[in-house]
Simulated scan of single mutants.
Amino acid sequence: MPKVFGNTTLVVSQRHNRTYSAKSVTQFLNDIGFADGVEPYRARIWPLGEVLPEPGMPVTCLVGTGVDTMESLVFGDGGFDAGPVKVVYGDDDGTVNLASLMGPIKAWSDSPAQVL
Rank of each mutant, 00 (worst) to 15 (best):
I45S: 09
S24C: 08
F34Y: 15
F28D: 01
N7D: 15
A22M: 04
D77P: 03
P47Q: 07
C61Y: 12
G90W: 01
L29K: 02
V4C: 06
L73A: 05
L10R: 04
L29M: 08
A43W: 00
T9W: 07
D36T: 10
T9E: 13
W46S: 11
Y41L: 08
V4G: 00
E71L: 05
T26G: 05
Q114T: 06
A22Q: 03
V4F: 04
V88L: 13
H16P: 00
E54M: 10
V4H: 02
L116G: 11
T26N: 10
V4W: 04
L10D: 00
G83A: 09
P53E: 07
I45L: 14
V74I: 14
V87H: 07
L48R: 12
G76C: 05
G33D: 07
D92V: 03
G56H: 02
Q14C: 06
L62A: 09
T95M: 14
T19P: 00
Y20P: 00
Q14N: 14
S111V: 05
Q114D: 05
V88Q: 11
F34A: 15
R42P: 00
S109G: 04
T8D: 13
V4K: 01
K3C: 09
G78R: 07
T65P: 00
G56Q: 02
G56P: 01
E54T: 11
Q27C: 04
V96I: 15
Y89F: 15
K106D: 13
G83I: 09
V85H: 08
L29F: 05
V59D: 05
G76S: 07
T69G: 02
F80P: 00
Q114C: 07
K23V: 05
S100T: 14
I105K: 06
G103H: 10
A113L: 13
L29W: 03
T26I: 08
N30H: 13
K106P: 00
W108S: 01
A82N: 09
S100M: 13
V59N: 05
V74S: 05
D77E: 15
P47Y: 08
E50F: 01
S100I: 03
Q27E: 14
V59Q: 10
P2H: 12
V11T: 05
G64A: 06
S72Q: 11
E39P: 00
G90I: 02
R18T: 03
F5Q: 09
E50N: 13
F75R: 00
